[in-house]
Write a protein that binds this DNA or RNA. Structure first.
Lengths: 334, 334
DNA sequence: TTGTAAGCGTTATCAC
DNA sequence: GTGATAACGCTTACAA
């Protein structure tokens, strides 16, 4: 005795499968009595429709694929939660994939999801090319977030990377810093690229030179931040301030300073682009920009749901403004 | 021109669908030439089998359901990543659900997953009853982790909650504390229950009384930790040390102390059951137990995969030992 | 208002 | 070796 099928329900209600289907789906046709009989039979048998069979027939799986570089990152986890909530409310399930910060794995992940198939995609890309994207995703609705590919897909959500970086540079300059270095993050991802661009622009705006070796492209990891900070601190002249393009990079900088017996912010000022949710609890508290994972997830999911429902939206590429959280690591008094 | 189907491949190769199916699935029967022809046709058409149709027919979806109280929690996110990796390698996809720390939502989530259907479940339960579980999950393989329901399911993985809590109490007692309070966490989840039990046992073992009101059952949130800490600090006599049963509770305690101008560990000692991955970077660094999300995810996934493959395992309920990380918040010198 | 039947894209059981 | 053909459980013209 496995799960009851629609045929079982129909038999018990004394009607045909099509009538049973119509009754359960609330289509017009069946009389009130018929509906009642079918509903009774269904609940008596504890009938639950097979999503699989329905999807095969209707060509809609009500499943969304979610692909990120690293789901264990608190930022992506927070985006996931909020996107999931929105999608769940809209009747969608979520299938998860990790690209592991590798373009090849990302393509494979997309392929797996499309085979399933998924009705739409939420993607934080880790450096896909436009042609690769078009070839593997085709016309399936896809909303980018955080890691964005421009010119393709049905929409995108992110923060204002360039102007945000400007805020950080401006603030450090206000503190009197002139030799500012950047832990730049991975330069295959839009976030890394745009933040670096914003850094260069802001430094230029202030008429400040960017010393040779003061820009450190690197992985988005704590270990990488630690290593690159050590390199920076070994330079002559040594930077007096460091901007980390991501929170893990900032942690790495923390760790390096601790190892080397340096005091933040007395010996070195630090500002981070991303604000981890415990930025406040660090010592010194971390100066950072508001990162908005909840908003990003919610908006990305909404864009996708609208696209799936055929709703046209005027604004398809959304960039959220960020604000500076002045805390202690930059030299502001707590 | 949508995706090519098996029929398209068969037609192009000049064979029947059944032969094409056999050839592609490597079943014996088809001759070498036939195999070759089918493979050529398949790649020419960029054929990708429909997972949906295959699942409907074989009654295996190769999809696993993953249910947690809150996926934005770094602990669960880390478990997810490691479990996902293991499952991916074994050819399974992962469908995600959030129970939002609510038993009703958890049941609904399980129902949704089973409708899909999923071949197995990875579940951190938030206080399900045995009968509820049996009714909704039936015989589908389910491995519990973190939040565990004993006596049902195909296995479980967690840490040694009781002895771990003993380690924390022992250590604070070594520091000379006698009035130790507990931010106990939610008492519907096994983790909360077992950690409280371990706390009582350890206090008893040391012959220490547990003062009235010194045990604070509460939500697992930072806000809750902050509030309960304030309550504890308003008590007479006031506890000299607090143990947080979870990391967010410890952060709340941090926040409360900061608000009240109290110095950790001089005015109050703090030890946490869970170690957040940045515990080292806090000031003071957080004394905690090693939490092992990566191991937990990996083991849980392995147990499930074994069960799905019909492999019998002797050890089905695994409890990982934990170690004490002596840092500064308990009063140890850094 | 209801029923019949075709099909969604596979796999599996038969014959040949 | 290979090919019809019947499922898997559902939706949806089209008939009645």
């Amino acid at each position: 005795m496995s799960r009851a099928t629609l045929a079982d329900v129909a038999r018990r209600a004394g009607v045909s499968v099509s009538t049973a289907s119509r009754a359960l789906n609330g289509l017009d046709g069946p009389s009130v009595e018929t509906r009642r009989a079918v509903a009774d039979a269904a609940s008596a048998l504890q009938y639950r429709p097979s999503v699989l069979a329905r999807s095969l027939r209707t060509r809609r799986s009500h499943t969304i694929g979610f692909v990120v570089p690293d789901i264990s990152s608190p930022f992506y986890a927070a985006v996931l939660r909020s996107a999931h909530e929105r999608l769940h409310d809209a009747g969608y399930r979520l299938m998860l994939m990790n690209s592991n910060r590798d373009a090849g794995e990302e393509i494979e992940a997309l392929g797996t999801l499309l085979d399933h198939p998924v009705d739409g995609l939420l993607l934080a890309t880790t450096g896909l090319r436009t042609t690769q994207f078009e070839r593997t995703v085709g016309t399936v609705p896809c909303v980018f977030f955080d890691g964005i590919l421009t010119g393709v897909g049905t929409g995108s959500v992110g923060v204002m990377n360039e102007s945000g970086m400007g805020l950080l540079v401006d603030h450090l300059v206000e503190h009197g810093h002139r030799r500012i270095a950047l832990l730049a993050g991975q330069q295959t991802e839009t976030t890394g690229i745009e933040r670096l661009r914003g850094f260069r622009a802001a430094m230029k705006r202030h008429g400040l030179p960017v010393a040779r070796g003061h820009i450190r492209p690197c992985d988005w990891t704590q270990e990488s931040g630690r290593l690159e900070t050590r390199v920076l601190l070994g330079l002559h002249p040594r930077p007096t301030a460091i901007i980390a393009a991501g929170d893990d990079l900032a942690f790495g900088c923390f760790a390096a300073c601790r190892e080397m017996g340096l005091d933040l912010p007395a010996d070195l000022a630090l500002a981070s682009f991303d604000d981890p949710y415990f930025g406040q609890l660090l010592e010194p508290a971390l100066t950072a920009l508001t990162s908005k994972p909840v908003e990003i997830g919610q908006i990305a999911a909404s864009l996708l749901v609208d696209a799936l429902r055929g709703v046209e939206r005027s604004e398809r590429d959304i960039r959220l403004p960020v604000e500076l959280l002045r805390r202690a690591s930059c030299g502001c008094v707590a």
